[in-house]
């Protein structure tokens, strides 16, 4: 069954026709070309497909595209302002908070959500916000540092 849905993605009103059984992740990646959210575990365990859904971090693989009707979505592509990287993205680059980069979009989206609610998070809060975001190469120390730096840079 096909459904017409309208949602706001990265500040742009988007209309799509989606099948009932299409996940939001697939719709974003394959129909809209927003490949920042990664296709990995498809079971909500790894955090690679994190997006903001009505302001809250969620796994795009665990939501149906049809459920996004009327929702406001922000993907990692929506963090930068045109050519200017978001403070978080810049801090990730400056502090080597990535190696292969596969987990980075999920880490960035989780961190972005954290900074929306807590402007100067401590290490504990950052760890809690990134809980369940798996990185298999860099380790987490530089990621946490980068989030701290970014939170200061924003002031």
């Amino acid at each position: 069954m096909k459904h017409q849905i309208t949602c706001k993605i990265n500040d742009e009103v988007t209309r799509m026709e989606v099948e009932s059984h299409r996940t939001l992740l697939d719709a974003l990646r394959e129909d809209l070309g927003l490949v920042g959210a990664k296709h990995a575990c498809v079971s909500g365990e790894c955090g690679s497909c994190n997006i903001l859904f009505d302001g809250e971090v969620v796994s795009a693989c665990m939501i149906l595209a049809v459920e996004a009707d009327g929702a406001e979505i922000i993907t990692v592509e929506g963090l930068a302002e045109s050519e200017r990287l978001h403070a978080l993205q810049k801090a990730f680059l400056d502090h080597n908070a990535l190696q292969c980069g596969f987990c980075s979009s999920g880490m960035l989206v989780s961190s972005y959500a954290l900074l929306q609610s807590v402007s100067r998070p401590n290490e504990q809060e950052i760890r809690a916000a990134l809980e369940g975001n798996l990185c298999r190469c860099t380790g987490y120390a530089d990621i946490i540092k980068a989030v701290q730096v970014a939170s200061r840079a924003r002031r």
Binding site: G44, G47, N50, F53, E56, V57, V58, S59, M62, I63, S110, A128, A129, E131, G132, N133
Partner: peptide, 9 residues
Amino acid sequence: LGSLRIRNR
């Protein structure tokens, strides 16, 4: 319960 993104859903 799970992680934040699970608790949000």
